[in-house]
Simulated scan of single mutants.
Amino acid sequence: MLPFSLAQAAISLDRTRVIFGGDNKSVSLNIRNDNKELPYLAQAWVENEQSQKVSGPIVVLPPLQRVEPGAGGQVKLVKTPEVASLPEDRESLFYFNLREVPPRSEQANTMQIALQTKIKLFYRPKAITPNTGDVWQERLAVSIAGHGFQIENPTPYYVTISDMQDSSDKRESSEFTPVMLPPFSSRQIALTAGIITSPVLTFINDYGGYQKQKYACEATRCQIKKSR
């Protein structure tokens, strides 16, 4: 039998998502080795929307580095000339991957696990740079459709809805399965349990934080309920 313990990541990342603005040449991410005793290798790469590893239009430098015990490091996301092929009127979705490679164990018959972090990477063209304080999630069109809701995203940004519940529901979160709406798209959300008459949607913002938005529905149309 191989000895094992609960796996805990050694290499950590300083964020849960990346926004790469079109007016930037690069974006730097901070990483850290939380293991105080052993050095680790940190391997990083970018995937496209289909989770296929790509060599452009965004690349990672360096793709592999050694991080000493308890020390920090940095990886840089850099644009390549292929970025010119991306749409200018909407965001493009990629994924940033960070895998830790542990040092070889000196013990025999030991199973080692290389843990990996995968976060969303949004390329945001300069032409759609939002104004300070702009909350584009408020521009979603929400309507009642059958046993659920139809949600339309008329914006050039990806919008992630992490939770949806009724305003009378006092739980921190429900059993809602998070959904991500691409730019200029719509999605029908079926309710599998409970009844929602006054929906409260929870969005994830650029910084990975959560923002709640209440709606009031009349007939089939729902409007944002402004707080007084």
Rank of each mutant, 00 (worst) to 15 (best):
A10C: 06
D14C: 02
S198F: 08
M111E: 12
N48S: 00
A42H: 13
Y123L: 03
E175K: 15
F122I: 07
R221W: 12
Q112C: 02
N153Q: 10
T177F: 05
E100S: 09
P183A: 01
R139M: 12
P81C: 03
L29I: 14
E47Y: 02
Q188F: 01
Q50C: 00
P178S: 03
V75E: 09
P87G: 11
E88D: 14
E91G: 02
L86N: 05
A193I: 07
M1E: 11
W136D: 13
G148E: 08
K120T: 06
N97F: 11
G73M: 04
Q213T: 10
S143E: 13
T220C: 04
I196Y: 01
D34K: 13
Q107S: 12
P199Y: 03
I31Q: 07
I224G: 05
F96S: 00
V179H: 07
V101G: 03
P125V: 00
G148V: 06
V101P: 02
Q112H: 03
T197W: 05
Q137I: 08
S5A: 13
L121N: 04
R32E: 15
Y207C: 07
E100M: 04
R228I: 13
Q74M: 13
S12C: 05
Y157D: 12
M164Q: 10
P103W: 01
I128S: 00
K126H: 07
I119Q: 04
A114W: 06
M111P: 00
D34T: 14
T160A: 08
S5K: 15
